[in-house]
Amino acid sequence: MGYVLNGEELEVDDEDFLTEPNFSDEIVPIIAEAEGIKLTDDHWTVIRFMRERYQEDGHTPNFRNMVAMLEEQDDSIDWKKKLYELFPKQPNRQSAKVAGLPKPFGKGGY
């Protein structure tokens, strides 16, 4: 499928993840629309979190660690439930995709 940003088609893999990270906020609504997601402030909170983790760690966290880290930042939200509401197709994978990051690798797709 590919995504077009400013007239340039970005390279994707067979699951439509970008092959190279793109940290432009302009790419997020393009991918979100393709995923059927209407962005909210909560989506952006998770997107920023995933981008920070990728930039600091070189990869995104697995779901369990994602929930634990988000709870450390804001424990007033049931993040496990919220993440499935925001990103119903495997939250850590789908949030990474919408954030413009490459496909997470490892056990269970993390």
Rank of each mutant, 00 (worst) to 15 (best):
L101M: 08
F105D: 08
G106N: 03
P104H: 03
E20Y: 09
I77Q: 04
R64L: 14
Q55A: 14
R48M: 05
F49G: 10
N65I: 03
K107W: 13
D78A: 13
K81A: 12
N22Q: 06
E35T: 10
N22H: 07
M69C: 03
E26I: 05
K103L: 02
E33I: 01
N62Y: 13
S95K: 11
L10V: 14
G36T: 09
Q94W: 00
I27V: 15
G108K: 10
A68L: 11
S76L: 05
D57E: 15
P21M: 07
D42G: 00
H43I: 10
E15G: 06
N92I: 01
G108Y: 10
L18Q: 04
K82E: 12
N92D: 12
F87K: 10
K89D: 14
D74L: 06
R53T: 10
K89C: 08
M1C: 06
D14I: 13
I47Q: 00
A96S: 15
D14G: 10
Q90F: 10
E20F: 10
K103M: 10
R93I: 08
Y3G: 02
T45K: 08
V46H: 01
A99Y: 00
Q73M: 14
T60E: 02
Y110P: 01
E85Q: 15
L39V: 11
I27H: 02
G2A: 15
E20M: 10
G36H: 09
P21E: 04
M66G: 04
G2I: 10
P29Y: 08
E52S: 14
Q90E: 15
R48W: 00
N92R: 09
V67I: 15
F105M: 13
H43K: 08
F17K: 02
E11M: 09
V4M: 00
S76D: 09
G106V: 07
E20S: 13
G36C: 11
I27N: 03
R64M: 12
A34Y: 11
Y110Q: 08
F23G: 09
I31F: 07
P91L: 02
Q73F: 03
M66H: 07
G58M: 12
K80I: 03
D75P: 08
T45Y: 00
D14W: 05
T19V: 15
Q73T: 05
E85I: 14
G106M: 03
N65Q: 12
K82Y: 00
V28G: 10
V28L: 05
A68V: 08
